[in-house]
Design a binder for these strands. Structure first.
Length: 423
RNA sequence: GGAGAGGUGGCAGAGUGGUCUAAUGUGCAUGAUUGGAAAUCAUGUGAACUCGAAAGGGUUCCGAGGGUUCGAAUCCCUCCCUCUCCGCCA
């Protein structure tokens, strides 16, 4: 959610910023709903103050007195009037809130113009894509692949996109999760193991609801949602809380399985590990002072990049253009690994600054020493990292002539041996 | 799942229909006192919305949502959560 005051006072600024995201919103409808609500609010509050004044006077009167009875009659009318207004007020407030929730977060000034993936800026490239995996094939074509990554049985047991990981496959998944958590902890992120079902309030605070409801798995009868990312429970950890300013920045990491229905993306990236309904991911999250959030974004991106460097995977960083930003994001970098067999880049991390957008929805604030007031924090998050696509890149880039996959040195202590074998 | 007891400010805890803008204690902040501290005393001490150029008003918030009433922290209903006991269970 945006600051309502900003919308009222600088609608043109808001309009221009939203245009940069290439989204269309009816700002006038929002402003109209806001004005209508405020006008009703004033009427209601006036009636309430009349009522309160009468209450105080009545408290001092003898119960059965003529004056008292007259006052009751008089106040009955006010009460009835107020009840009528309250209904309208609530409706107006709800309309106003709904209208406000349709407004996306505004992009930062440093976000490049553009609306298509081609207009994202290649911020940096690391390693040598051309030099990797000379004889590489897409990972699903590696002999023995389906023994370690069993999509068929997964489809039987659950459905398409829910693979079993077997033997060295399972071991590599575990090694990656472990490696990510260890490295992230060392980088100063406190490890958290979160709930993987969340309630509707949490999903709303991070922006999954109401708009992306169809992308989540929902449980009955309790109406809990399987998390699409650990970002959801992690961000909500401090929901409706006021933090100590000296505690900022707070940095945390969490491993969780992630569940995504991927409705509407059938037929895209259906092969292998590129896109699955359940996958493992370690998420990095920061709650920071507004004044330092862009520095923290750079740091977050560096932390995620460091993991790829240690895994010796060629990768590039994209600075996303306005049109490629998500609803809630102000600025975003995507990290993409090179998958030599597919000869394409795969996104493995998205590092974003949400500024106060999520914090306002979630009411996460800090007590400012300067003003003594509760101010909204800025939240940032990024993957550190998503497992399946890193796995895909490792399989394709590190496949050796003997059909085994070389495990990068940094991962060997976690994997326990230097090669993964499909035999 | 069954039975019972609860949910009030940072914390503890009173309040069971009308100045409750919630007693009291404690914590915290500032000041006084002190060589410095403790103790003591004094003052202050939440959040949100809204009107206003400002000064300053107004309104809401006692787990959540409804209801009764002229008036609800207080009465009624529904839900959520916590605790105790029982049952079940990794």
């Amino acid at each position: 959610m945006l600051d309502p005051k900003l919308i009222r006072e600088s609608p043109d600024l808001v309009r221009a910023a939203i245009a940069k995201k290439h989204l269309t919103v009816d700002l006038d409808a929002v402003l109209g709903a806001d004005a209508a609500w405020r006008s009703l609010l004033q009427e209601s509050e006036h009636l309430r103050s009349v009522q309160k004044a009468a209450n105080a006077a009545m408290a001092a009167l003898p119960k059965g007195s003529a004056e008292f009875v007259a006052k009751v009659a008089e106040m009955k009318a006010v009460s009835a009037q107020l009840k009528g207004r309250d209904g309208a007020l609530k409706a107006a407030e709800e309309r106003c809130r709904e209208a406000m929730l349709t407004l996306p977060n505004l992009p930062h000034a440093s976000v490049p113009e553009g609306r298509t993936p081609e207009q994202n800026v290649v911020f940096s490239t690391h390693g040598d894509p051309a030099g990797t995996g000379r004889a590489a094939v897409p990972h699903w074509d590696i002999p023995g692949f389906s023994r370690l990554f069993d999509f068929e049985r997964g489809a039987k047991v659950t459905g398409a996109g829910f693979p079993f990981f077997v033997g060295d496959g399972a071991r590599l998944v575990r090694a990656l999760i472990n490696f990510f958590l260890e490295e992230d902890s060392r980088a100063g992120y406190i490890e958290v193991s979160p709930p993987i079902l969340v309630n509707a309030a949490s999903a709303t605070a991070t922006g999954q609801l109401p708009d992306k409801e169809g992308q989540m798995y929902e449980t009955t009868p309790d109406r809990l949602f399987a998390v699409p990312t650990a970002e959801v429970p992690l961000t909500n950890f401090f929901r409706d809380e006021i933090l100590d300013e000296s505690a900022l920045p707070i940095r945390r990491c969490a491993y969780s399985p992630c569940f995504r229905r991927e409705a509407g993306s059938y037929g895209k990236d259906v092969r292998g590990l590129n896109r699955v309904h359940q996958f493992d991911k370690v998420e990095l999250l920061k709650w920071v002072h507004p004044s330092s959030s862009y520095g923290e974004l750079d740091g977050l991106r560096d932390d995620a990049e460091a993991l790829l460097r240690k895994l010796e995977i060629p990768y590039r960083v994209l600075l996303m253009c306005g049109g490629e930003l998500g609803f809630a994001q102000s600025k975003k970098y995507d990290l993409e690994v090179w998958a030599a067999g597919q000869r394409r880049w795969l996104e493995v991390s998205s590092c974003s600054n949400f500024e106060a957008f999520q914090a306002r929805r979630a009411q996460i604030r800090y007590r400012s020493r300067q003003t003594g007031k509760a101010e909204l924090v800025h939240t940032l998050n990024g993957s550190g990292l998503a497992v399946p696509r890193v796995l895909a890149a490792l399989l394709e880039n590190n496949l050796e002539a003997d059909g085994r996959v070389r495990i990068p040195a940094a991962l060997v202590p976690h994997f326990g041996k230097e090669h993964l074998s499909f035999a």
